[in-house]
Simulated scan of single mutants.
Amino acid sequence: MRKLLNTLYVRTQGSYLRKEGETIVVEQESRKVLQLPIHTVGGIVAFGNVLCSPFLLGFCTEKDISISFLTEFGRFLASVHGPVRGNVLLRRAQYRQADNEEITQKYATNFVAAKIANSRIVILRTLRDHKSKVNSVLLKNAATQLSQCLKQLEEISTTEETRGIEGAAAAAYFSIFNHLIIEQKGDFQFHERSRRPPLDEVNALLSFTYTLLAHDMRSALETVGLDPSVGFLHRDRPGRPGLALDLMEELRPVIADRLVLSLINRRQLDKKDFRRAENGAITMSDDARKTLLAEYQNRKQTEIYHPYIKESIPIGLLFFVQANLLARCIRGDIEGYPPFFWR
């Protein structure tokens, strides 16, 4: 089993990262503020004006450590990683299968089925834990709609139909997402999903957390030798990690959505942690991003039971387990891709 390592998030503007021996050094205003052994780091995410020395970039690629560069507010810019890992035959098989509509539809359906099922569990757990504080009728109706979407998946035959059902399920889920917010309802209102830019505090949290998921999923796919750009559910688009987005679908409700709801409902963030830009976009304060990143790292350490491998693992290893299962399926070692169903 792969060891779960920490991700280094660098948020302070003007920071400079460099190599020193077998360590990563973070400097601010020419002053060393952090030094970490390379073997304790699983990835680096740099926000905004953060520079890396060429020697550190080369060092990280040799050690199979991905570096992602984001804007200060969390929009993905670029990533740096080493030479392609894994057997070239695996990627060739991936490309052939991505061009086969019948195979593509099967993968896409599995991704979407797990996403819908896990979204339904998020709703049902809220009903169970906060029954007296929520509109039970609305949440039960939404859960029923998601169950119907799952049944519809059993009857479709094309990837386009799968995408249509995924869209309908997402609409049903997000239509009641505001009702999953139990505390601070006056300050945190969610009406619909808005991405570029996020137009409310909840969307700002979701978008930022989804970016973190994309980094971790992309790194996991590269580790097992798959091409994160060539997906099955998401169409090919230059610069878009389609396969990483595919595998993210089943993990969004479990990791990202529940994290965002927890931060709000536990009052770890409040209205003053956000500000509105002139274009209407909502952005988080530095302290808010720091809190989210810390809780995201903590959440990755939490144990969760995986029904397919039949053991409990840290949530942070889900990325690598699912990437490895997909690679095994593409190679023909197992029959059918087993997505992660939350229990």
Rank of each mutant, 00 (worst) to 15 (best):
L318C: 09
V10Y: 09
G280N: 12
F73A: 07
R266N: 09
P228N: 08
D99H: 14
H234E: 15
M248S: 10
T61I: 10
E166R: 03
Q297F: 06
I282E: 10
D246E: 13
R163V: 05
S66G: 04
P241M: 12
F274C: 07
V26R: 13
F190N: 01
A108E: 00
R196T: 13
A171I: 11
R11D: 11
F177K: 10
P339V: 00
I315A: 05
S262G: 03
Q97A: 09
L146I: 02
T302N: 07
G336Q: 00
L8S: 05
H215D: 03
P83R: 07
T302K: 11
R235S: 15
G242L: 09
D270K: 05
I121L: 06
N141Q: 06
R331H: 09
E201H: 12
P228D: 06
I103A: 01
D333W: 09
V134W: 02
K131W: 13
A281S: 13
N135A: 08
T159V: 14
P198Q: 04
F177M: 11
A172H: 13
L226C: 04
I264E: 00
Y173C: 04
Q35C: 10
I44P: 06
V50H: 07
T209E: 09
F341A: 01
G231E: 01
S285A: 14
V50D: 08
L150Y: 00
E154S: 03
A172C: 13
T211Q: 03
K272S: 07
I156M: 12
S194H: 12
E278H: 14
D273I: 01
I255Y: 02
I309P: 00
R218Q: 08
R258N: 10
D99T: 12
F177L: 14
G186A: 02
L206D: 02
I24T: 11
Y16E: 11
I156Y: 11
I181H: 09
R163K: 12
S175E: 04
M1G: 15
K140N: 03
S157M: 10
F69E: 09
I330F: 07
N279P: 08
F111G: 00
T23G: 12
Y308N: 00
L150E: 02
R11V: 12
L206F: 10
R258M: 10
Q322P: 03
Y95R: 11
S229R: 13
